[in-house]
């Protein structure tokens, strides 16, 4: 294991620097419409979610919410939870994948933990696939294609995903 631990440690800073600063359209919208054709789309959405706090702008029920830059799943905020809490009746998977998202309010890059909530069947509300900085399954800690409920102590079925702030990226 040590060769991989050392290698991962060496790469960690690089990952956080490069991962997920872009603000793309949701995957399907991009495919249908074309990113270049509707460059103002994210702005239109932020106006629609003006009720959110100024420091944490956007709606956690909206796929374009800034924290969801590397998410792939059903949004727990639409399923009885919030952006950082699981719905009642589920279990929080302690293992997770990590992304780095830029908060448009303060311009800082935050490290986001995308935990899965487990134990009820798939919520199937607010499906959201962003994939910014997502990596293949052999880079597991950056892979959002993995069912993170499986294999953990919450070894149950997948319900939805949250996006919890772990801290601000070290600018150094």
């Amino acid at each position: 294991m040590s060769r991989f631990d050392k290698w991962l440690e060496r790469r960690a800073r690089n990952i956080a620097r490069k991962t997920s600063r872009r603000f793309f359209l949701a995957k399907l919208g991009t495919a249908l419409v074309g990113a270049s054709a509707y460059p103002l789309l994210p702005i239109a959405r932020s106006q629609a979610t003006a009720l959110a706090s100024e420091a944490d702008p956007g709606s956690p029920e909206d796929c374009e919410y800034w924290r969801y830059c590397a998410i792939d799943g059903f949004l727990c905020a639409c399923c009885g939870g919030t952006a950082s809490s699981c719905p009642p009746g589920t279990a929080l998977s302690p293992i997770t994948w990590i992304g780095t998202c830029r908060n448009p309010a303060d311009g800082k890059n935050y490290i986001i933990s995308y935990n899965d909530c487990c134990g009820q069947s798939a919520c199937r509300r607010c499906q959201c696939m962003r994939n910014e900085g997502d990596k293949p399954v052999y880079l597991t800690s950056q892979a959002n294609d993995v069912n993170w409920c499986s294999g953990s102590s919450a070894d149950m079925v997948y319900n939805c995903s949250i996006a919890a702030i772990m801290g601000v990226e070290d600018e150094a």
């Binding site: 399907l28 249908l32 629609a48």
Partner: peptide
Amino acid sequence: LAVFGHESSLM
């Protein structure tokens, strides 16, 4: 639907 942010409805 895509333009107005209803991709999940499309799905």
